[in-house]
Design a protein around this nucleic acid. Sequence first.
DNA 1: GAGTGGATAGACTGCCCAGTCTAATCTGTG
DNA 2: CACAGATTAGACTGGGCAGTCTATCCACTC
Lengths: 198, 198
Amino acid sequence: MMNTVAPPQPGNRERLLQAARELFLEQGYDASVDAIIGRAGVARQTFYNHFQNKESLFAEAVRCCVSDIIAPLDGRAGSLRESLQDFARVYRARALSPEGVAIYRILSSQAPRFPELIRELFGLGDGQMISTLAGVLRHAMAEGQLRQSEPVFAAEMLMAMLVGQERAQYLFGVPREAADETAKIDQIVDGFLRMFAP
Amino acid sequence: MMNTVAPPQPGNRERLLQAARELFLEQGYDASVDAIIGRAGVARQTFYNHFQNKESLFAEAVRCCVSDIIAPLDGRAGSLRESLQDFARVYRARALSPEGVAIYRILSSQAPRFPELIRELFGLGDGQMISTLAGVLRHAMAEGQLRQSEPVFAAEMLMAMLVGQERAQYLFGVPREAADETAKIDQIVDGFLRMFAP
DNA sequence: GAGTGGATAGACTGCCCAGTCTAATCTGTG
DNA sequence: CACAGATTAGACTGGGCAGTCTATCCACTC
């Protein structure tokens, strides 16, 4: 059912967004409008009925991608170690997935062109996670489970250790031999807890 | 003095490389040949006398950039803590400099286009540093200064903590309030030593 | 059935780019 | 001086791209 007569078909909009997400992640911002409408199976003019221009589509597509990446963190369930391990699992799975790496690559490469947009998306993604993680750590510090220190600094250290070097290698296309995921997470979380032990 | 008569002037080659380094770091691979020869003050044909095409120039320019970034590490001078602090200082200074961030951005963005080149450069840059750092750590483990563990893993943790979150924010153009550099390095190195204490 | 407004295909404009080609100039060698 | 080879300015080709425009078609409303 429609309001009056034939408004822009939401189906087409969705198809365009989906095609754009795929192609931007594959080819970066250089993915052409022709390629996008081709994959969406939609006419050129239809694209310009739904979006002002390529930039608008890019902004919207990339916003969707980022919201798929953020990892949840529940600080109240179980021990601190278990909370951190749970967070680590999800964060690594998302940030190190092919999509996670691709979105990181395209966002960093387009930062000079769309400074405000990229800053905003960083705030919604990594920034958000740093804040909530820092909150959990601050609480643990107040309870004496961790030594008194700057919670944001501690959160940054943990997140850096969880994906740092591995993400770099995926970004650069360097192959990595498979490793035991849970053993690695345990090593990092336990090491972190030693580093910030009271 | 020249071999026979008027070989390609090395001065022009150098000017082209310098201009290319500047423009590629500023604008990424999209920097046009016109812009590069313009900045070098050289004619179009001269460019194609010295380089086969844009790709060749890019490869050579970016190789120079990487060799400027790698940080030295001397494991035999002073205590382990001091060696790591020295390394940390230089590594952070280079990796977090505007040039260091820009080269990281352009290499990761061009990894899909030039897979072999980028893998090679990673090996010459970060890969090299991981190896030498891991060597120092392995030695310290053998001497009982650090707990027995995988030296490469430990090296990756330290390097991730040293630049991880900070580089991400520079990559994304997120401003960061200034902090005490030496205090931060001490915190990270001391935390690392606690994490891997015997 | 008339009208409104999206959807389609495709042409078209204007722009930018990498790489080639031409004609003229300059500089050193023999 | 004649020659070889680098250099220069600039035209030119061929291709790709974003965005606009036209003509036609289609679906729905009144």
